[in-house]
Amino acid sequence: MTVAAKTFQQWLSSVAGSSSSASVCRAAGIKRSTLAQQLVRGRVTVATVVAVSRSLELPVVDALALFPEYADLSAGVARPTNAELLSQISDLDILAEILKRSPRAEPPDALLAVQLSPIPHRDSVRTWLDAIGPTDLRQRLARTTGIAPQNLSTQITANRLTPELAVASARIAGVGLTNGLVVTGVLSPSEAGWPSGERALMLRQTPTSALASLASTRLEYLSRTLKRAEQDDAAVQAVWENLG
């Protein structure tokens, strides 16, 4: 989740040289007060390291690997598996692909390049964990990192996963260590060494039957999420209606 402030400062002076912290922050697009607070607390977030590395045009994964917590990160970069690639295609893109293949669809327009929606999609974290995981992945993740299971599921429901947990999940599942950082939006796919266009290729190669079954799983989950949101909304409306 975070790296030690002391290590961060050593790293910063080695890469940014003499430039002031104000100019570093400006270039990285982070607030000075945010960085100052993180330094005071002694823990600097991975997002800060990533933003600074990007602004200095350093390879992000290699920069992260300079910190002891993430030392094996660059060695652990691996191509995403097919299941991982599919997990990062949004519900709508899967449905669109199915519709496109149906006999009644308009003849495909070759000129119109299909643009998949970017990673992460609305449910990236959960679909990724399901795609990489042995079935007891969440239990093992909770055991190895010491996070309470209900906190873990709160994060997953909110489509969040701390960098620490993302890397730990990848380690347990034996997939590329940076892949979890991609699905949580910390790294861009290209920064993590995902070949571009790989998702679109994967989508095209997947048989329609597999896509249909994937879509049905996704829709099942979507309907549950929507139902929950609608119930919550109705509860709030009832409170306002009666007591507002």
Partner: peptide
């Protein structure tokens, strides 16, 4: 409690 509800209602008008 009533004041909190009223406040949240004001922030999100129906």
């Amino acid at each position: 409690g009533l004041a909190l509800i009223w406040w949240s209602f004001l922030r999100n008008p129906v």
